Amino acid sequence: MNNVVHIETISEMHKMLPNSKVKHPLVAVVDFSKYQEQFYSGLKLTLGFYSIMFKNFCINQMKYGQQSYDFQEGSLICMAPRQVIALDEPLQKKVDVSGWGLFFHPDLIRGTSLSRSIKDYSFFSYEANEALHLSEKEKTVLYDIVENIDVELFENIDKHSQTLIVSNIELLLNYCTRYYDRQFITRKHANKDLLSKVEKELLEYIQSPLLNEKGLPTVKYLADKMHLSSNYLSDLLKRETGMNAQDRIHYYLIEEAKNLLLSSNKSISELAFSLGFEYPQYFSRLFKQRVGQTPNEYRSLN
């Protein structure tokens, strides 16, 4: 099966799950222990809604985005609408399958404070190999929130339903943010190795013909080299250095610009073009913003 199956609505998802009933047209909680049938290789899915899935068992070679991933025990992934999920190998029936999924359509949060802040939860754009690995305590906290949502879904829909459900979803996302921060800290040693690789990659790019040939290095270029998503790399760098990926790129470009200003007689325009800037005005504005002086002022004062 090579075609991508798109599931646009929560109701369509329920139709694919045996004996599943729609409790709310815009949000669903799924108990994975009830669905232990074998899935087949080659299945590709896209969803028209947000997904937060916790699995407490291992499956083989799930591909999400461009990355193959062994879905480890006790891991949670968050996916924005239209992400592609592919199962590359058959998944055999598991004896001890457990976990849950929370799915909510963008229409559920439309007009709420969460609709304005949902873009700030950058982990919705992480790759699956950047999943959140939860401690026992963290699993319990998230499960209790999901259970609260499920209980609310059994109530008759009234004027309070949306507010209560959305506020619980927002609470869940805020805990995910906290736990991702914890995960960045516990992986500090591995992150330091990654930082070294980022710096090496940036320096090599800036000091090579690539800068002149392809222009400024992009966050996506850097993330691809690190085999990470752009958001994950940017968040990691922000936590480790205080600068996100774009700021880090600018930092190294400005440092190189300082060297060139003091070691060559190139005009500011020539120097800007050699650094990959398409417009010298953009270079001068960025330099002034970062250094507090124009390129000419920096050259004359040093």
Rank of each mutant, 00 (worst) to 15 (best):
residue 254 I to V: 15
residue 249 I to G: 03
residue 163 T to K: 13
residue 115 S to G: 01
residue 187 R to P: 03
residue 246 Q to R: 12
residue 25 P to W: 07
residue 239 R to N: 11
residue 241 T to A: 07
residue 175 Y to V: 04
residue 51 S to V: 10
residue 167 S to T: 15
residue 217 P to D: 07
residue 92 Q to F: 08
residue 13 M to N: 02
residue 153 L to H: 08
residue 80 A to K: 07
residue 171 L to R: 15
residue 97 V to F: 00
residue 51 S to W: 09
residue 195 L to A: 06
residue 32 F to G: 08
residue 163 T to P: 00
residue 278 E to K: 15
residue 53 M to N: 14
residue 263 S to M: 04
residue 41 S to T: 05
residue 69 Y to Q: 09
residue 285 R to W: 12
residue 269 S to R: 02
residue 107 D to T: 09
residue 120 D to A: 10
residue 280 P to W: 00
residue 164 L to G: 03
residue 231 N to P: 09
residue 61 Q to K: 13
residue 204 E to P: 04
residue 294 T to V: 01
residue 27 V to S: 05
residue 297 E to H: 01
residue 144 D to L: 09
residue 41 S to R: 04
residue 155 E to S: 11
residue 3 N to W: 14
residue 301 L to I: 14
residue 62 M to Y: 09
residue 156 N to G: 06
residue 202 L to W: 12
residue 89 E to A: 04
residue 244 N to D: 11
residue 53 M to Q: 13
residue 292 G to R: 11
residue 35 Y to A: 05
residue 162 Q to F: 08
residue 203 L to R: 08
residue 69 Y to F: 04
residue 155 E to D: 15
residue 262 L to A: 07
residue 171 L to I: 10
residue 253 L to R: 14
residue 298 Y to R: 01
residue 112 T to F: 05
residue 232 Y to S: 09
residue 26 L to G: 03
residue 183 Q to E: 00
residue 188 K to D: 10
residue 178 R to Y: 15
residue 241 T to R: 04
residue 241 T to K: 13
residue 265 N to I: 11
residue 192 K to A: 10
residue 36 Q to T: 12
residue 135 S to I: 02
residue 32 F to T: 14
residue 240 E to M: 14
residue 60 N to K: 10
residue 9 T to F: 01
residue 148 N to S: 13
residue 142 L to M: 00
residue 202 L to T: 08
residue 232 Y to V: 06
residue 203 L to M: 07
residue 143 Y to M: 07
residue 201 E to K: 12
residue 215 G to C: 04
residue 191 N to I: 06
residue 28 A to S: 10
residue 50 Y to G: 04
residue 266 K to G: 08
residue 144 D to A: 08
residue 76 L to S: 00
residue 61 Q to L: 10
residue 144 D to K: 11
residue 145 I to D: 06
residue 290 R to Y: 00
residue 55 K to F: 08
residue 255 E to Y: 13
residue 302 N to H: 11
residue 127 E to Q: 14
residue 169 I to P: 14
residue 119 K to I: 12
residue 210 L to Q: 02
residue 78 C to F: 01
residue 15 K to W: 02
residue 55 K to E: 03
residue 117 S to C: 12
residue 232 Y to C: 09
residue 93 K to D: 02
residue 28 A to Q: 08
residue 289 Q to F: 00
residue 75 S to E: 12
residue 278 E to Q: 14
residue 282 Y to K: 15
residue 250 H to N: 15
residue 165 I to R: 04
residue 285 R to T: 15
residue 5 V to H: 10
residue 91 L to Q: 15
residue 228 L to H: 03
residue 153 L to S: 14
residue 105 H to W: 02
residue 54 F to A: 03
residue 11 S to K: 13
residue 73 E to C: 07
residue 272 A to E: 03
residue 71 F to E: 15
